[in-house]
Write a protein that binds this DNA or RNA. Sequence first.
DNA 1: TATATTTGTATCGTGCACGATTTAATTTTG
DNA 2: CAAAATTAAATCGTGCACGATACAAATATA
Lengths: 147, 147
Amino acid sequence: MDDQQLKLNNQICFPIYSVSRLITKAYKPFLEEMGLTYPQYLVLLILWENDKLLINQIGEKLLLNTNTLSPLIKRMEKMGLLMRRRSEKDERKVFIKLTKKGRGLKNSAIPIPEKLLNTLLTEDIKLTEVMLLKDTLNKWVEILSKK
Amino acid sequence: MDDQQLKLNNQICFPIYSVSRLITKAYKPFLEEMGLTYPQYLVLLILWENDKLLINQIGEKLLLNTNTLSPLIKRMEKMGLLMRRRSEKDERKVFIKLTKKGRGLKNSAIPIPEKLLNTLLTEDIKLTEVMLLKDTLNKWVEILSKK
DNA sequence: TATATTTGTATCGTGCACGATTTAATTTTG
DNA sequence: CAAAATTAAATCGTGCACGATACAAATATA
């Protein structure tokens, strides 16, 4: 039976799934200092770039729906990182805005990308490879998220 | 403030995390026909290659611990895909073995890798790129899982 | 051979993901 | 304008992930 393609080593998804989890794990010590999970960190990254967003707009950027984001954002509200406020013009909309505390965390986050990069780089993983992978995967995100 | 590296587009982890979820989603229609989730499919891939394994051995291959695998495997046992049997020589060990049903699913799975590849390939994603990415990420798994 | 340590698995609690459904507000349409 | 359709967010249920802990069996050690 021609089952070579069913071997774990030949799968395309398995290494992506594993590397995703391994890199999230690599972030963990840095994020724990800030009391954040990785998805919460992603929400902050977006809010540091955009001061005021709807839940849907955050979802578009992270490719997550409200069934994931609503509870996640409520947890972040409870942590004092952000505020939720209903739009007055359209009561269906909920604007998300950082609190001072949420904005303040940015300073602690500044060194993280470089620290993470350093944990990735080894004899066998060069900077050019990381950058190439990043560009390739960003392209994939574009293509696959539109399907 | 030098915060370029904090922009979502410059993150290395975000595209990996997103592509991982997007590809898992691409598997979904094929796996649903078989009544499987993606992690369950991974367990089957391993058991199709190795008839009889300890939970730990499955975990080593998938980089998952028993706190994830134990309930997952119990669900698969309930679905009639595999059996758990305590070793008689060492009562701590639990051997996992496919049932006939679990072995039989392999035939339905044979076409999946090619189907999935076809949903990935576009004008902008060539086969060589997929293969290169797979090899790079497999190398990363090796390196990162040993840290 | 008791005791301590290690090993293999299971359990617990929390936080995502995500399909499906619900609810309420707004917009469109007959 | 009233009914239908759409939109934005929330909720529900299930299944991972994973740190921490528990527990029993096996092994090592004093």
